[in-house]
Design a binder for these strands. Structure first.
Lengths: 122, 122
DNA sequence: ATATGTGCAAACTCTTTGCATGGAG
DNA sequence: CTCCATGCAAAGAGTTTGCACATAT
């Protein structure tokens, strides 16, 4: 059901080497270094296929397009650099967070994003 | 420099009555109840004008289009209801949050979003 | 009277889809 | 040899812009 094509292999390799969430443009750019003919539609389709298969998960951050990361990671948050626009993992989390909701609101999950300059852009 | 048109007055009134961040569709819908001829482009333009004038501020939440709210509010966060898709204010904040970034990262601001069911949808 | 604001439609950008061809199994 | 995957180009969805007319000042 899931075929192992050159394109899909390239996209998987890109994520194995990335170590951080990637945007669709980043996946396309890095993927084309491995398979130059790689097209946008293929990236869009594979990202959905791999997410559907539980291999990738979608990272939604405020104000920017979706990023994707390897799915087998424990709970964590993200840092978004305003200069290079890259996202990075933040592995610590203020756990009492979900108690902050107003009365009558039922919290199911939460999202924390830090903004600023990454180590390389400082 | 800023003219007081029927349309702009309607949009301002919508926000005065809202008490929560509004999406562009919500602004259009509520605005048309006051000025039925109100067009999409006018909403888009006015929202930018009013934000530029410091009267509105843009609320960016993960995974959804931008919302807008009155700008003269103290620091706060948001709750996004997965059922009705409406955003609400959360006035408490876990202050130590910006210390969570990895070494070498310079944090300038942060964003916390709670997800779940709002009081009306529970 | 003048210049900003409005409404419409066209232009853009980002994402998805249809279709013929390619290639994994 | 099948059928899923790919690449292209066209179609959609959401947002922005150009232009002629309306209207606040």
């Amino acid at each position: 059901m899931q075929r192992d094509t050159r394109q899909r292999r390239a996209i998987r390799r890109v994520f194995m080497n990335a170590g951080r969430p990637l945007s669709l443009d980043e996946i396309l750019e890095y993927g084309q270094r491995i398979v130059p003919s790689l097209g946008v539609a293929t990236v869009y389709r594979n990202v959905k296929t791999l997410a559907g298969a539980g291999w990738l998960s979608e990272v939604r951050l405020p104000g920017v397009g979706p990023r994707y990361e390897l799915a087998d990671r424990p709970h964590h948050h993200h840092f978004l650099c305003r200069s290079c626009d890259q996202a990075f993992d933040v592995h610590r989390c203020p756990d009492e967070v979900e108690a902050l909701a107003p009365d009558g609101f039922e919290v199911e999950s939460h999202d924390l994003t830090l903004f600023g300059l990454c180590a390389a852009c400082t």
